[in-house]
Write a protein that binds this DNA or RNA. Sequence first.
DNA 1: TATATACTTAACTCATAAGTTAATTAACCT
DNA 2: AGGTTAATTAACTTATGAGTTAAGTATATA
Lengths: 121, 121
Amino acid sequence: MQDHLSQTFAALADPTRRAMLARLSKGEANVSDLAKPFLKDMSLPAVTKHLKVLEKAGLITKSKDAQWRPCKLNSEGLKDVADWMEQYRIFWEESLDRLGDYLKTVTVKEKTKGKKNERKR
Amino acid sequence: MQDHLSQTFAALADPTRRAMLARLSKGEANVSDLAKPFLKDMSLPAVTKHLKVLEKAGLITKSKDAQWRPCKLNSEGLKDVADWMEQYRIFWEESLDRLGDYLKTVTVKEKTKGKKNERKR
DNA sequence: TATATACTTAACTCATAAGTTAATTAACCT
DNA sequence: AGGTTAATTAACTTATGAGTTAAGTATATA
């Protein structure tokens, strides 16, 4: 898996890992918290591996607190995906009025922090 | 790969396939058109396989025109991804005033079971 | 000090994804 | 009919991803 974006998409291509992200979207959690819903289905080392995949993909970060490893969402990974998606918005935003909104957005082209286009909603 | 969304993400986790989608975002193309940029790197059957992955993921559709197989983007697959992404918008949409607005309206508190990692947002 | 808790690493199995070459199907063109 | 173009299928190799169990590393606590 050469590039980082591929790594991120690959990380997302697993329902267990997406469920972990969903859990983390509600707030920080350590490994055993995250593992809990899955321990019927898999072992703890399997969970560790999933988290490592998410971490390498830039979708979460892990820190240390005594013997715990609190994890939290890393928005950078998600941003990479969102930025990639942006070029296809015109295709999946298919309802005509929404398409109209999109066209207004691209003509306004508001910049944020010298970065990418911000979207009006 | 159980679920369809995983299949879609897995399809996107390859730079060749993403390049094919990028090409198709410019308009329909048949298999040999799509293959052209990659024939230095891989065989035609490999291209066929990539396209099959994209098709099964709902990212493209293929039709028949004599011996050609014109392919085009299928927005449904992209929409699935966009819809999934939507729940994380608050994380990757980094504009501070918007985030500020969100934080004013919502206060979330949650506990992890060890009473350790409590986090205000 | 020793025991429990939280998590990781190691070593392995098994399934599958990505590529190959060779053969095959299908439609068109003289 | 015979040949060319377009694309797929078949059979195979190889690498990797996802899981396992068992052992190891830290840190807290009795």
